Computed example of a mutant assay.
Amino acid sequence: MTGTQLAAWIKGHWKIENLLHHVRDRTFREDDSTIHVGHLPRTMASLRNLAIGVHRQDGHTDIAAALRRTARDYRRPLAALGLTG
């Protein structure tokens, strides 16, 4: 592996870390979760990833603001998923 390839790999890793894990840690406070049994931690992480993905697909970059906006009207995430008319 060349230095350029290693640098690209590290940059890619931190892009994922910043786009997904950081949001899960800060916005959803995932590290403070008390869910530790069986498949539940992975299930919750998947649901958080889905929420982040839906908001990003809908054009939002500030996920915390998007969650607050969504909390005011339950139809917004359904519309983003194409589940309402």
Rank of each mutant, 00 (worst) to 15 (best):
M1K: 07
M1A: 13
M1T: 13
T2D: 14
G3A: 11
G3Q: 10
G3M: 09
G3K: 12
T4K: 12
T4V: 11
Q5N: 02
Q5L: 09
L6D: 10
A8V: 05
W9V: 15
I10N: 03
I10S: 07
K11E: 15
K11I: 07
W14P: 07
K15L: 14
K15S: 08
K15W: 07
I16A: 12
N18Q: 13
N18E: 11
L19F: 00
L19E: 15
H21R: 02
H22T: 12
R24D: 08
D25T: 00
R26H: 08
R26L: 11
T27G: 08
F28H: 04
E30K: 05
D31C: 00
D32P: 04
I35E: 01
I35D: 05
H36R: 12
H36W: 10
V37N: 14
V37Y: 14
G38D: 03
G38N: 01
G38R: 03
H39A: 12
H39G: 05
P41V: 09
P41C: 10
R42E: 12
R42H: 10
T43N: 12
T43W: 04
T43V: 13
M44L: 15
A45H: 01
A45Q: 04
S46P: 01
S46Q: 13
S46C: 13
L47M: 10
L47G: 00
R48C: 06
N49L: 12
N49S: 15
N49M: 12
N49T: 12
L50I: 11
A51K: 07
A51V: 06
A51L: 06
I52W: 00
G53H: 06
G53V: 05
V54S: 03
V54E: 04
H55M: 09
H55Y: 06
H55Q: 02
H55A: 06
R56G: 00
R56C: 01
R56M: 09
Q57P: 03
D58K: 02
D58A: 13
G59Y: 04
H60Q: 00
H60Y: 02
H60T: 05
T61G: 14
T61K: 13
I63F: 02
I63A: 07
A64L: 05
A64V: 00
A64S: 08
A64R: 05
A65S: 10
A66R: 04
A66M: 02
L67G: 08
R68P: 02
R68V: 03
A71W: 04
A71V: 05
R72N: 13
D73S: 03
D73R: 04
Y74H: 14
Y74W: 13
R75F: 03
R76W: 06
L78G: 00
L78D: 07
A79P: 04
A79Y: 01
A79W: 01
L81Y: 06
L81W: 00
L83A: 09
G85A: 10
